[in-house]
Design a protein around this nucleic acid. Sequence first.
DNA 1: TTTTTAACCGAACGGTAGTTTGATTTTTCT
DNA 2: AGAAAAATCAAACTACCGTTCGGTTAAAAA
Lengths: 209, 209
Amino acid sequence: MKARNGQRPGGAGVAEAAKPKSMRIEILDAAADIIVREGYDACTMRAVAALVDMKAGSLYYHFKSKDEIVEEILNQGIETLYARLAETIRNLPKEAPFADRLSAAVGVHISSLVGKDQKYMHVYEHLPPIIKRRSRKMRERYAQLWHDLFADGMASGEASNGQDLQLLVPYFLGGLNRVPEWMRASGASSDQVAALAVATLLDGISAKR
Amino acid sequence: MKARNGQRPGGAGVAEAAKPKSMRIEILDAAADIIVREGYDACTMRAVAALVDMKAGSLYYHFKSKDEIVEEILNQGIETLYARLAETIRNLPKEAPFADRLSAAVGVHISSLVGKDQKYMHVYEHLPPIIKRRSRKMRERYAQLWHDLFADGMASGEASNGQDLQLLVPYFLGGLNRVPEWMRASGASSDQVAALAVATLLDGISAKR
DNA sequence: TTTTTAACCGAACGGTAGTTTGATTTTTCT
DNA sequence: AGAAAAATCAAACTACCGTTCGGTTAAAAA
């Protein structure tokens, strides 16, 4: 028993056959998995270790504390999200209409929430407040991207809610972040979901006169 | 030292001077307070006991377990919210326009989220998944109220997104539940927030043609 | 006043958490 | 091959968790 991966050290940029994924990443994946599915409490060092076929103490060879593990997951999640959105916006034609810019942004956000590394994106909501506060700055930077997007739309006259963006942005993002829930409940695809969000935000649900 | 409340037993319906609030409720309040502000982990029996000037063991005179405390907070929160919305909808004139019905519902939801017993409303989000699942049924019943509200609006032709309500309801509610956050960030009143939510949902933010 | 009951304390118990440490195994390097 | 480094283990340590229980105080009932 105990097939394991064949525990060999080093091996960062080496091109190997199966999955030379660094142990560090495997641990982060395991921890994120547990947190998202069973909560922060259930994410004990022993539980994480079991998922990567190790004993709890061995984790301390790769990380200096449990806190470091959680923090790295948190950072990776929000930083990936930020980078994707920032790049998407940057690569947009300067004269793209607001509706298109919004669609692109929503697409990136949603696909990240349900994509292959969705684990990292959903860890945040399961953490105790004390830890949450540590990534507040970075999360505000992400919200700022959206803020600027809307501000541009209003400056060009394409969007006009006449309202405080400080209210609109978290309101809209709050709805978007529930995406995985509704997708599960309705069986909709991420494209359908994105379309609904954009259409509803732009035009509302009131019967058109 | 140790002023305390003057530990007298019984006293349920007795009219006394200061606050004859039952110990049971005081404990629930304390626990909810800790959970919302510091998370579920921090809500230890010893921490709760300290808030009500007792020792941990004494809590077991009022509750048979920590689980019972949490479950009672959870039930009280969601049941109060359900009762308020159900009554608000019931007391609405039958021929009230959809926009008014929506406004009323949003008003109830938001005022509960920031009202005097907001503590109980926000406990849910801090609990480990295993406990969350216990109140899932009740929360689905609450969502059903909203679902019916929207369904009526679409049936009467006042609203028409042409979309799946299974998607729209959680999307809208997800945004609403972030209310306390944005209020803190923007300094807006709950009325402003409610107005923004209703207006945005009905008409969207696109510049009117 | 005596008795009874409600409310709380002090101190412990078993369990499990995160972490440390010294030995041990496995891989890489020479 | 052997030496060096990397990776893991087994076992313990401390700390704190939820919970129990016998004793203690104060109010209510008799």
